[in-house]
Simulated assay, not measured.
Amino acid sequence: MSSKEKERQMATLGSEEDALQGQAEIWRFMFSFADSMALKSAVELRIADIIHSHGGATTLSQIASCIDGGSGTSSPDITTLARIMRFLVRRKIFTVRHPSDGGDPVYDLTHSSRWLLHGSEQTLAPMILMENHPLLMAPWHCFSQCVKEGGIAFKKAHGREIWDLASENPEFNRLFNDGMACTAKIVTGAILSGYKEGLRSIGSLVDVGGGTGSLISEIVKAYPHIKGFNFDLQHVVSAAPPYDGVCHIGGDMFEAIPNTDAVIMKWILHDWGDEDCIKILRNCRKAIPRGKGKVIIVDIVVKPDGDGAFDDTRFAFDLVMIAHCRGGKERTEVEWKRILEQGGFCRYKIINIPALTSIIEAYPDD
């Protein structure tokens, strides 16, 4: 065989291997929803909680015996359970060990499945149930329609926006609030552990869009010298519980923000388009002292070439914003820089914290 024939043969083999690999990847992407659906079923069945309650090393029959059949008479389908567990073991959500004596396989938790525990302070279980609820999945089917026509995916799916649906549907509202609360706890913990120096120098702090005040209360608890202000719409703060060292103030961030040494906004600006963010930032600029003061933005920074633990999820979160929000988006550093400058903050630095989000510390121009 001549050298040219060998080259052609190698090129053909390479082309076939590439095509096969490409096909395999498309099959994998096509069924990637199976990951989230299997994860959701594990949370609904409380499998991680059952294994945890047994101290680990739990057999399939032990897991099944602790699952509520729902009807009160039927028993769980252990064959279906086994197939779901096999998949989740494949995904390294759980581990399985086959005893040498031929006994039943035993399942245990991993560092991943510990985030599925319902009773834990640090859990993602409510967020999994929220994001995979049919009401929140439906807008994803409207993406191509949004590309062709514009508009809001959630409204196309349900005829109204997410906040309107939450106000009309108490069950959905509870699901949504539980999902937000669990992620708030995780991010709050990351702020307190990863931003200590940034908080020590603050005299007063306004949490803009602070909801019922959970973030500012935890900050003031850790730093009692800070005068804390929880700022949100009047109907929101009117339902907020009292916290030591925290004052609740009702108002509209698009109108004015209370005067303070520093402003913090956690997962607020990603809900809004650029023009709205610039309005909010300009009001923040008016609220803090000239020549000093700062705005602390706790939000995602998308890294186009990032390969860190959270980088893929940051890209996915940007699509979540398409699905659920009006104009919301996750931003790259270049995009953050643009709106910060137009909002009156030409200087900033990005601080990494142990979370999906980062901290963008922005300083006024003068």
Rank of each mutant, 00 (worst) to 15 (best):
M1N: 14
S3M: 15
A11I: 13
T12Q: 15
L13Q: 13
E16L: 09
E17K: 05
L20E: 10
L20F: 10
Q21W: 12
G22M: 03
E25G: 12
R28H: 14
F29T: 15
F29C: 14
M30S: 13
A34R: 15
A34L: 14
A34C: 15
S36P: 06
S36D: 12
L39Q: 08
S41W: 15
I47E: 11
I47C: 03
I50E: 05
I51S: 04
G55T: 04
A57M: 09
L60P: 12
S61G: 04
I63Q: 08
A64M: 04
D68K: 15
D68A: 15
D68I: 15
G69R: 00
G70F: 01
G70P: 06
G72C: 04
S74M: 10
S74A: 09
S75A: 08
T80L: 13
V89N: 07
K92T: 10
I93P: 00
I93H: 04
F94P: 05
V96H: 08
H98V: 06
P99T: 08
P99G: 07
G102I: 02
G102V: 03
G102Y: 05
D104V: 01
L109V: 14
L109F: 10
L116W: 07
H118N: 13
H118G: 10
G119K: 00
G119F: 02
L124V: 07
H133I: 02
A138Q: 11
A138D: 11
W140M: 01
H141T: 14
C142W: 03
F143T: 03
F143E: 04
Q145K: 06
K148A: 13
K148G: 13
A153K: 04
F154G: 03
K155N: 08
I162F: 00
A166Q: 05
E171R: 01
F172S: 00
R174N: 12
I186V: 12
T188P: 04
I191Y: 13
L192Y: 08
E197G: 12
G198C: 05
L199Q: 05
S201N: 13
L205G: 11
V206F: 01
G211D: 01
G211F: 03
G213T: 11
S214I: 05
S214P: 13
S217G: 11
Y223D: 12
H225Y: 12
G228M: 06
N230M: 02
D232N: 01
V236H: 04
A239Y: 09
A239N: 11
P242H: 10
Y243W: 07
D244T: 08
H248P: 03
G251Q: 09
G251H: 11
P258V: 14
D261S: 09
D261C: 06
V263E: 09
M265N: 09
D274M: 00
I278M: 07
N283Q: 02
K286R: 03
A287C: 03
K292L: 10
G293C: 02
I296S: 02
D299I: 01
P304S: 08
G308D: 02
T313R: 11
T313I: 10
D318C: 00
V320E: 06
M321Y: 02
A323R: 00
C325P: 04
R326C: 14
G328N: 05
K329P: 03
K329S: 15
E330C: 03
E330W: 11
R331T: 06
E333P: 11
E333V: 05
V334I: 13
L340G: 12
E341T: 13
G344I: 03
G344W: 03
Y348T: 10
T357G: 05
I359H: 06
E361L: 14
D365I: 08
D365Q: 09
D365H: 07
D366T: 12
D366G: 10
